[in-house]
């Protein structure tokens, strides 16, 4: 039921967002590639939201010891990782025409890459632990430490170097488009997250049943 509503909302929002990104939003001086940014920024924001959910769910797990919170954390981390990957790729595609290179060690690129590596490690380590409770505990610890590391990474790398465009006074139409786009991706995040979570919980239940039957 919830999933159907989310699916409807994200479909409608996606259509509106596409209209706004390609037709409603005015062309800026950097030309047509600038339109990438309407999807690039929401992806980044959602990735961050997803990892924040991981952080909160990890704390909740260590506190309550309910495996449900581990399902929350790992599902959100997975969606967050997908969004971070897309965000890195679109950023790279934007950088090529704008800066002439696919990659540069700019502040935000570097910090996003580190963020991405932290959550890759999160999943690698999950795959190394077979016992459910231990896996949940360890990944909660990584979920907490990883998220706390993010602001430090960002501050450090800003001190280090930056070439990223700063957001200056924007056309109200640009702002509106960006807002709709963020709303779209937020809905999409919750949709994917809910799907993954439901599946994860079924998986866990099934595994427990299987273990019980094999005994």
């Amino acid at each position: 039921m919830k999933i159907k509503i989310l699916l409807g909302v994200s479909t409608v929002l996606m259509l509106v967002a596409l209209y706004m990104v390609f037709i409603f939003a005015p062309e800026t001086e950097s030309g047509v590639v600038q339109r990438i940014f309407y999807f690039h920024i929401p992806l980044a924001w959602i990735a961050f939201l997803a990892f924040f959910v991981v952080f909160v769910a990890s704390i909740m797990y260590l506190w309550k010891r309910d495996i449900k919170w581990d399902a929350f954390a790992s599902s959100s981390a997975e969606v967050g990782l997908v969004f971070t990957t897309l965000f890195l790729l679109t950023g790279s595609i934007w950088a090529k025409p704008e800066w002439g290179v696919w990659w540069t060690w700019d502040s935000r690129l570097t910090s996003s890459l580190i963020l991405w590596l932290i959550y890759i490690a999160y999943f690698i380590i999950r795959s190394y632990i077979s016992e459910e409770g231990q896996r949940a505990r360890f990944s909660s610890v990584i979920g907490i430490i990883g998220f706390i590391d993010v602001p430090i990474v960002v501050i450090t790398i800003f001190l280090w170097r930056t070439a990223h465009p700063r957001i200056e006074a924007m056309d109200p139409r640009v702002t509106a488009t960006l807002m709709v786009s963020i709303a779209t991706f937020t809905a999409l995040y919750f949709l994917l997250f809910a799907l993954r979570l439901a599946m994860k919980q079924d998986e866990d239940k099934l595994n427990r049943l299987k273990a019980f039957l094999r005994r």
Partner: peptide
């Protein structure tokens, strides 16, 4: 030390986290 891969786990966790320092 409590995971299956032991020595391999520390570097993949350690390096991204200590990147800022």
């Amino acid at each position: 030390v409590n995971t299956k891969a032991r020595e391999m786990v520390l570097p993949i966790l350690f390096f991204p986290i200590v990147a800022p320092i």
